[in-house]
Each structure stands twice: as structure tokens, then as C-alpha cells.
Amino acid sequence: MSETQNSPQGPAPDPAAGATVLLVADPGLPTHRARSIEDSLQQHLDEVYDPPIRLQVRTSMLRLRPDGTLDLSEVLEQARSSGDPDAVLLLTEIPRLRDGRPLIAEIFPEHNIAVISCPTLGVLTTRRRILDALMRCTLRMAPTSESLDASRYARRWARWEELTGPDDHQLLLGSRVIGGARTVAGMVAGNEPLRTAPKLSSALAAAAATGAFGIFYSSIWSMSMHLTTQRLLLIGILAIGAITAWLIVGNRLWDAPRYERLARVVLLYNLSTVLTLLMIVALLYVCLVVLIFTSALIVIAPDYLAEVIGGEPVLARYLDIAWLSAAMGVVAGALGSSFDKDTDMRSLTHGQRERQRRFTEEEVGQ
């Protein structure tokens, strides 16, 4: 369907009464993004509809049924309490797929509800992409009486498809390959690795304490002297990879699909978990290298270092010591986090946050 076509599912807003749009966002990053574009969205809506429409922004978690399908009952209740708006937009962090392709947005014409998946929009120019997706959905649910070129909100990598029959929905789908990579990147951003890294403060403390031994043990100095740059890099990479695997296994962060149709989505969950933890552990490693390198410059006298290693005490030697010591420290830090009851790793992943959305079978039956 062309972007310039108006959707037939709803009448144009009454020019005398205006119209109302309700934007409901998941807690966390979706709400932050919704608030960041609220003024811009209002401006675009004012340009499209006359008189200007009223925009309401709320925060509420989109719930899931036990089989993983969307439960819109709470959203419908919010819509009724808001005076039955002309368009209801749900901005969620749930990654959604349709036949292996990222499902960017889905319109439910029977309720005038559109569900927009944040992760499918990636991490680059996200605010603009969210704004475009919201406007495209709004124009289809509440088409204007005047001719409007909606192509300015279109993206080359996304196109609309229609489902006919009992599931008469409109789907905005991304590309299969590039869209999948974009979705994983969006999920990693949703995990907010930079903001969640401080949750491993106990691991950093244990890593720093262990890594500090490298400053005081001359055997570490000598070992680093005889290791090539390539081997040192390999040691660092192996340490980061091994500890990432340890954290995933030790905290049971690897998800298994309960339903075969959700296997692809669960794969995205697992990929985003691995990448998120790799970023956190790599950040921990870099922090340790900087900390140990600075401490080594203060503690180890250049003359003494030259005497031990039998070479020039250049900065590269201090960096080698810091790099090797950090590898030991990262291992100790990850082990320490496994025994820290205050370190909640599971809340960092999409899989765990999805479980918080699910109604149990008992709740559904009530």
C-alpha cells in the first residue's frame, strides 16, 4: 500500500471537534523517548490536523498473555478513561517479528490502536524514527479529510502490508537481514548497558583488588614482558568472553523458547543479552586497565622496573602490566559477583523484563 493512501478503517476527525491522540509508553527507555519527542509530536500533529489535536502521554506496561500474545485490555481501559481518543499509540520495548521480519508497527483497526516496537527502530536517529512511525500510524487510524502527502514520514527499509480475514491488521515490516541487526542493536540500547554497569560495582571492587596484585608481584612484570602484543590482546579477549559466558550461565540468562513460533524472538533476546554483557564486561576491563596503569606509574619506580625486566621502563611496559593484571582482575570480579546477593543480573535483560509482563494462567482465569 502506498504511503500516500489514507486508511479506510476510520472516519476523518470532525473539524469542529478536533481529535485526541493517546500515547502510552512502557516504563523505562520507551517512556524517556516518548517524553523527549512529545513536543515534536505535538507540533507535527498540529501541522496535520486542524484544529490542533490534543496529545496525552502516559506510562503503562503492555502486558502479555501466557502464550506470548499481546493483551490490550488495560490499554483499552485507559483509552476509555481518556474519552475514547481517535488514535491510541503504544510504544513498547517488546521486540516483535512477523515471518522472520521485524514488526515495527501493527495497527488494530477494531480498536484504533497501534503498537510500535522501539527495538525494531535501532539506535541511530531513534527519536526521528519513532516520531515518523507514530505519525504514520496516526494518519492511518485517523486519516485527514484533505489530501496529505504522508511520504515524508516513510522509511525506505520499512513497508506496509495488510492482513485480511479475521486478523484484519496493518503491519509495518522491516527488512529481514538489516532489520534483524537493527532490532538487536535496539534491544542492546534498551538494556542500557552504560546505565546498568554500576550494578556490578561489587565485581569492580573485587576485580580492582585482584588486579592490584599485578602491581606488586614482579613475576607479572616479567611475564608481561615476554608476551607479544597479539598474545596480550588474545588474553584480554578470552578473559572478556569467558567471564561473559560465566555470567550468563551462572545467572541463568540464556532463554529457551516456550513456543516454537517464538524461537526467533528468543534468539534476539539471547543475542542482545550476550552483546549487552560483552559491553559491560569490556567496559569493566577498560576501567581496570586505566586504574591499574595509573597506579603502576605511581607505585613502580622506573629504575626498579628496568632492573626486574632487564629492559627500558617505557610506558608500553606499564601498559602491558596493567593489561595482564586486568585480565586476572576481571576473572576475580565475575566470580565475586556470583556470590553477591545484591547483584541482580536478570533485570538487565529483555527476557526477564518480558516475564514481568506476562499474566499467569491463574490471573487470566480470574
Rank of each mutant, 00 (worst) to 15 (best):
R261H: 12
A105D: 07
E312V: 14
P51V: 01
L267I: 12
W160I: 00
Q56T: 12
A105G: 06
L277M: 03
R156G: 10
S40I: 00
S2R: 10
A158C: 14
L41N: 02
V290K: 12
Q42N: 13
E307I: 06
D255S: 09
S347E: 13
N270M: 03
Y259A: 09
D340Y: 07
P30R: 00
L297S: 08
L315I: 11
L124V: 09
G180K: 00
Y285L: 01
Q56S: 14
G83V: 00
S147G: 07
P302Q: 05
G100H: 14
F339N: 05
V299T: 15
L124Q: 11
M135G: 02
L267R: 15
K341W: 08
T228Q: 01
T294G: 09
V286D: 08
G100E: 14
R358S: 06
T126V: 11
S272W: 03
G329M: 01
S117L: 06
G18Q: 02
L29N: 05
S151N: 05
D46A: 14
R33C: 12
V188L: 02
S337A: 08
R127A: 11
P119F: 04
A282I: 01
S201Q: 06
L319N: 11
D39Q: 11
G241P: 03
E110A: 07
L348F: 08
N191F: 03
R96P: 04
A197C: 06
G100W: 12
